[in-house]
Amino acid sequence: MLRKLPLYICFVFGTFMLAQFFIPHPVSTALYKMVLDWVQIIYALSLLVGAAMLIKHHTLIASKPVAKDRQYSLIVLFGIFIMIITGLFFGRGNKTVFLWIFNNIQAPMQATMFSLLSFFVASAAYRGFRARNAQSVFLLGAAIIVMLGKVPIGDMITPYIPQSADWLLNVPSMAARRGIYIGIALGTIATSLRVILGIERTYLGGK
C-alpha cells in the first residue's frame, strides 16, 4: 500500500492538472492555485533536505583525519557558515557583507567558470571539426559561415556572409531542430503518460 500510494497521488494530480487546462470554472482555478501553492511548499522543504545533505556529506569527509581532499570539504563548510552568519545577522540588502561576498567572491568565481567555455570551444573546434568526409565538409563550411556571419567582421568581408548565416540557421538548421523537437515532444508526452498511469516508476526510487 505504501508503495502504491505515490502512484495514486501521481495519477490523481496528473489527471487533475490535465483536466484543469480545459476547465476555466473558479472551482477548478481555486484547486489549481492550491496545488501550485503546495508544490512550492514541498519544494521549500526540499531546500532544507539539500542543505542537510550537503552539510552531512562534507562533515563526514572533514571529520576523517586521513580523508583525501578533506580541505575542500572544510572550505565548503566554512563558506556555508560564513554566508549563514552574515545573511542572518548582518542583513542581505545593499552595502552588506553578504552582498559584498556575493558580488566580489561568488560572482567572479562563477564568471571565471563560464569564461572557460571560450577556451573549451576553441580547443573542441580545433579537435572536432575535421573534414573526414563529405558531410563533415558541409558541417565545417556551415560552421565557418555562421561564426563569421554572427559578428561585425563577417558583414565587413561581404554582406553575403551574414545573409548566408541567417539562411543556414533559419532553414536547414531549423528543419533539423524542429524534427528533434517533435521527437522530444512526443517522447515527453509518452513518458508523462507512463508516469501518470504508473507504468514508469523509476522516479520513485527503484523499479
Binding site: 528533434i180 521527437g183 522530444i184 517522447g187 509518452a190 513518458t191 507512463r194 507504468i199 514508469e200 523509476t202
Partner: peptide, 22 residues
Amino acid sequence: IGEEYFAASGYLSQDPMILGSL
C-alpha cells in the same frame, strides 16, 4: 539524440509496456 534518449528506458529495461509506448 532526441527521442533516442527517451527510448533508453524501454531499450534498457525491455519492459513490454514501455516498448509499446515507444
